[in-house]
Amino acid sequence: MAEGRNDGVRDVIIVGSGPAGLTAAIYTGRATLAPLVIEGEPSSTSDQPGGQLMLTTEVENFPGFVDGIMGPELMGGMRAQALRFGAELLTARATRVDLSERPFGVWATDPMTGGEVEHRARALIISTGARSLMLGVEGERELLGYGVSTCATCDGFFFRGHDIAVVGGGDSALEEAIFLTKFAKTVTVIHRRSELRASKIMQERALANPKIRFVWDSVVTAVRGASKVEGVDLRNLLTGEEPQLAVTGLFVAIGHAPTSDLFKGQLDLDDGGYIVTLGGTSATNVPGVFACGDVQDHVYRQAVTAAGSGCMAAIDAERWLEAQAHHHQSPGGMPEDAATFTR
């Protein structure tokens, strides 16, 4: 495997390019820290440059956009704004990190050689977000792209006049279901409980939509079909019944898990895999490493809170770098440990 070393140590590397990472890039860029953003690789899942918003349609609750804005358009704007302030964006996937010594090491894929390139920085901002969970049942992976979809906005078009299903009971599941009624004849929402997790406004919209019906207390146990989805096997968790549902499309929206595997054993993670940050800041347990966005947030998980925490991480990193520079110039300056980290 070819391996290269990128010359020079950066002030800041940002891993991830959703609202958190790009806001951190805008702020550190404006602070003339010339951040390198390892933005990810194209994908049809949320693990891609721009993150989860690349798969959404209308974002109605990002302040400032009275009539809403399309997710990819919002992310395109943030990306252009980061570039404007001198951020460098690398379309590559981070493959491993070394946080045991400073400057920190981050390795990223090199599409030219198939190997990886090493990058080094004095401060690291982690904004790797969350990835969508899959069901992990028979037929799901085999039929991905042939009726099983991770991207309603990409694939809804192909189900004009079809009977299809959405799995999940949260905001993203209902948002997808409502979007898909633009094309499908019927959309069946399959949910494992008897009530929805989604916000009131989404519930009201979905329940009022004549094309949407619900199958409660049920899980999908298999996806059926030879070369295309023909149906799903269900199990009712209360009655134990195992009915089949004839659908040609299955959209999975059962939630997200933090993308933190890269940092296991090097950063403190909680039981859910979220990076632990020091109360009210973006500081992790490793001085100089900051986390923002959905990879450290299991409560709010909104575009606007991700962006807000990206701003916090940028300011925290900037102050930390300043304190470090001061410390190196005059012995007895700022101590390095996170416990005395001040805002």
């Binding site: 690789e41 194209p42 090199d110 198939g114 792209g145």
Partner: peptide, 12 residues
């Protein structure tokens, strides 16, 4: 090839 992928994977 179904779905967006990185350059390395597409080339492969």
């Amino acid at each position: 090839i179904v779905g967006a992928k990185g350059k390395g994977q597409l080339l492969q």
